[in-house]
Design a binder for these strands. Structure first.
Length: 433
RNA sequence: GGAGGGAUUCCCGAGCGGUCAAAGGGAACAGACUGUAAAUCUGUCGCCACUGGCUUCGAAGGUUCGAAUCCUUCUCCCUCCA
């Protein structure tokens, strides 16, 4: 029934969305015409999913809507080994505790992500459940025997490391692809999984898995890869000043998350709408066309940011984020907005708490506050920024930019809050306590 | 083992006794324009008690009224010949 009301087949839709890079078969459309068990893996090298993992996440969401059974695998075991794919040097091993903690957090995140949405329930598995129990001797006999070292060395991920002498590759990482290949075998055996997908650097691992299933189970299964998250310049995307854009609201605030996608370049927004939203083709094409023509209203970016924020952080959080953006970018005096909403809107902004006495007497020197709150690296810089008119106090640009400006109690919002802004969108909060 | 070349402010890279906090480019930040975009233009870009002062040019000494610039030693890099 889910399939019936789509005018596109699952594979056709993924192709249109630009989520298919390489496939192990030309017949994926046929495979995906009937409900299929599909898996993709997530590496617990960090405690949270991030922007890059939105590509596989949303691909799964799209497939699920077509009625496919999704398995999201967390690499509790493989995370202990380290995937050499796409890495130019040996990774330092995370300790078991850290991998374990990350694995639990990712599993919880995945569960939340797939809690809502159309389609069959999603199964979340940890490959430590089976890889952890394997005996080395059995593994080498049953799995290792099917891998020719000659072939393994041809794989991109490994070859690169052989060619660069300094980097090298340890036996541990060299073995990685066997483990991932074995995952496919296990998921095929347990759940009848017939399709694996992953980011484009996973191609070698996926092919190994397809191969191994054929050898061990005598069945033909398939795989495909998705593009990496890059911007129009082909650069790896999803970095904020503070590092990766995480899906965990504690690591990247919902506000920062929304703002990140809102600032998507016109050249990228059409592609991201196709990847990351469930909107239908005509709508996406209309939005993308608007952005291409430079319509200026950024409807496309707003739609993208809203859909993603809702998907990851929920409707309520999206509402807060929108109100925050409105109050901060609406212009005008922030005193009118009121302290409560501002505190909420700026919950992720850098902040400090200073004593009330600072404002008494001759007042607190603006330049000092700018440095203390982290808006400027030094007082010299703070003076320059003030002189350049880059600093706004409580949303109002300084009437007479003077580096000697002092702030008195009457400048405080609700008698307890001061909002400093550098440039257009860097906000800092000074609380008086 | 021998012979040379180099190490400059976030990066690249000029400077080679005073006019050097140090050209130029990139990055970054801000202003204008705009759409909280891109491009473009403009400005800033060591620190502070900021019309002045202080600390920087691999490290430590030295020469000199004065050194990023000259000398000595040390550390590290690179090239060529063995």
């Amino acid at each position: 029934m889910l399939v019936k009301d789509r005018h596109m087949g699952a594979f056709e839709e993924l192709t249109w969305r630009g989520l298919v890079q390489q496939t192990t078969s030309d017949n994926l459309a046929q495979l995906l015409a009937t409900p299929t068990v599909i898996y993709t893996g997530f590496d617990p090298s960090a405690s949270s999913l991030h922007a890059g993992t939105l590509v596989p996440l949303m691909t799964m969401a799209h497939l699920r809507r077509h009625g496919h059974q999704i398995i999201a695998l967390v690499g509790g075991a493989t995370g202990m080994i380290g995937d050499p794919s796409g890495k130019t040097s040996e990774r330092k091993l995370l300790d078991a505790e850290e991998v374990g903690a990350n694995t639990r957090q990712l599993a919880a995140q995945l569960a939340t992500f797939f809690e809502t949405g159309e389609g069959p329930p999603v199964r979340i598995v940890d490959n430590l459940d089976w890889l952890g129990k394997l005996s080395l001797v059995d593994f080498l006999r049953d799995v290792g025997k099917h891998f020719a070292v000659n072939q393994m060395m041809q794989r991109d991920s490994v070859r690169q490391r052989f060619e660069t002498r300094e980097a090298g590759i340890s036996y541990t990482e060299f073995s990685y692809m066997l483990l991932q290949a074995y995952d496919f075998v296990e998921l095929h055996r347990r759940f009848g999984c017939r399709l694996q997908c992953g980011a484009s650097d996973q191609w070698g691992n996926i092919v190994s898995g397809v191969d191994l299933v054929r050898r061990l189970a005598g069945e033909t299964v398939h795989g495909f890869t998705m593009p990496l998250l890059t911007n129009a310049e082909g650069k790896k995307y999803g970095k904020t000043e503070k590092g990766a854009l995480f899906l965990d609201g504690k690591l990247t605030s919902p506000y920062a998350f929304y703002q990140f996608w809102l600032n998507t370049a016109d050249a990228d927004v059409g592609r991201f709408l196709r990847w990351f939203t469930l909107r239908a083709q005509p709508e996406i094409e209309a939005l993308g066309a608007g952005a291409q023509q430079g319509s200026g209203d950024r409807v496309a970016q707003k739609a993208l940011a809203a859909d993603l924020t809702r998907q990851i952080h929920g409707e309520a959080e999206l509402g807060r984020v929108l109100r925050a953006a409105e109050s901060l970018f609406g212009g005008g005096d922030l005193r009118a907005v009121g302290g409560a909403l501002l505190e909420e809107a700026l919950s992720a902004a850098p902040s400090i708490t200073v004593g009330r006495d600072r404002f008494e007497g001759e007042g607190a020197l603006l330049v000092d506050l700018l440095v203390e709150v982290g808006a400027c690296p030094s007082k010299s810089d703070a003076r320059r920024q003030v002189a350049a008119g880059a600093i706004a106090v409580n949303g109002t640009p300084l009437a007479s930019p003077s580096a000697e400006l002092r702030l008195a109690p009457r400048d405080l919002i609700d008698d307890r809050l001061l909002i400093l802004r550098r440039g257009k969108r860097n906000n800092y909060v000074v609380r008086v306590g």
